[in-house]
């Protein structure tokens, strides 16, 4: 890297991702948006934009199921709570949703678990394919990191999405389930070893790996996975009395800091 890199990039955008010829046509990753891609569902286009490949009908159905199964219009869940606060504070829908989406890139749920988990399953799969024992791999991971993302859940010990997703996978013909099967085996190991249950992040990530996503593209694909739960939270808070979403009395905040002192 040097100043030459800046000179060579000055005043030009060199791309293979696309451009719009306004008033004429749009090229989207090598294809004409209005002709070649016009019949894709929005979700298919989104996945194509991330990976550059088009998924089969059953794969798209699975990708769609993943998002639908985790869209909870529950205002107590943190990102949804933000959108409800935005509604009660009478800010705009895009600001509310953008904030909600950004906050899903969390460490205890969402963004980080998804990305770390898909990488874990890919590494585990390579290890097992090379003749290693899955239990050894899991032990080494636990020794190094103490937790394996996708197993254990804040707020609840089991995850209702897991049986629904397993049922969906079994009822639909998904071509490769190598990582999915691995996730189930890890679940059985961890249940016996640490008495913790699998949460759906493990299955989402494993299926992401089975669909050919790498960690980075899966990270991006899952960015919007919770968003469909947010509009109802915003709308209802906005329909209700202004500023009245979970109001907090002064004495409902426990103060643990310094006593009163002079400035």
């Amino acid at each position: 890297m040097s100043i030459a890199d800046l000179f060579s990039h000055e005043n030009k955008i060199v791309t293979e991702m696309g451009r719009s010829y306004l008033s004429q046509r749009v090229v989207y990753r090598g294809k004409d948006l209005h002709h070649d891609l016009k019949n894709l569902s929005w979700l298919e286009l989104f996945a194509y934009g991330i990976t550059g490949r088009q998924f089969s009908e059953s794969e798209v159905k699975l990708l769609n199921f993943i998002w639908v199964s985790t869209s909870y219009p529950d205002k107590s869940i943190w990102p949804n709570h933000i959108t409800a606060l935005a509604g009660t504070a009478r800010t705009t829908p895009p600001l509310a949703l953008a904030a909600g989406i950004a906050s899903c890139e969390a460490a205890i749920f969402g963004g980080k678990p998804f990305k770390v988990a898909i990488d874990f399953f890919k590494r585990a799969n390579s290890y097992v394919s090379d003749g290693g024992e899955l239990a050894d791999f899991v032990d080494a991971e636990l020794k190094q990191h103490k937790v394996i993302f996708g197993y254990g859940r804040p707020l609840a010990s089991t995850d209702e999405r897991v049986p629904h997703l397993i049922k969906f996978v079994k009822e639909n013909s998904i071509n490769s389930l190598e990582h999915f099967n691995l996730a189930i085996k890890v679940a059985i190991l961890l249940k016996a070893k640490k008495h913790i249950n699998m949460n759906v992040a493990a299955l989402y990530a494993a299926l992401g790996a089975d669909l050919g996503f790498d960690a980075e593209s899966f990270h991006m694909y899952m960015t919007l996975c919770f968003v469909a739960g947010m509009p109802p939270c915003y709308i209802e808070a906005k329909q209700d009395v202004e500023g009245a979403f979970l109001p907090v009395r002064c004495d409902r905040v426990e103060y643990t800091g310094e006593s009163q002192r002079p400035w």
Partner: peptide, 25 residues
């Protein structure tokens, strides 16, 4: 909620309104 940063003292006539606010005391 729990905080070591901020304390609001309620107004006598409205528990949702602070009459005094303290930052780290």
């Amino acid at each position: 909620f729990k905080t070591a940063i901020w304390r609001d003292e309620a107004s006598p006539d409205n528990e949702f309104l602070a009459q005094k606010s303290y930052c780290h005391g």
